[in-house]
Amino acid sequence: MGKTIDIIKKTRTVPEEVKEKRKEFVRIKKLIIKSLKEGPKTIPQIAKESSVPAVEITYHLMTLRKYREIITGELDDMDEYFSYELNNTK
C-alpha cells in the first residue's frame, strides 16, 4: 500500500510562510549548535556570539532542549544564568 502523504500532496500545497518559518528555525538552530560545539554557554553568550536576540535564543534553545538535542548544565556563580550544552548521548 502506498503512503497517504502522496495522496494529500495532490490536493494541498505548503504555504510559503510555513516554509520561511521552518528555514528561520533551522538557521537559528544551526547557530546555537555551532556555538555550543565549543562548550557549554549561557543564553546571553550564545546570543552575543550568534548576533541573534537573546529572547529568540531562549525560545529556540528551550525547544531544542525539549527534544533532547540540548541539555542543561551548571548555574553560574552569581546564580543568574544556566549554561547549556549539546546532548552528545542522543
Binding site: T42, I43, P44, A47, A54, V55, I57, T58, Y59, L61, M62, R65, K66, T72, L75, D79, E80, Y81, F82
Partner: peptide
C-alpha cells in the same frame, strides 16, 4: 515546564 527552571524569557536569567 517549558524551561529547565523559572526563567525570564528575554535572556534565560533566573
Amino acid at each position: 515546564r517549558p524551561f529547565n527552571a523559572v526563567l525570564r524569557p528575554s535572556d534565560g536569567k533566573m
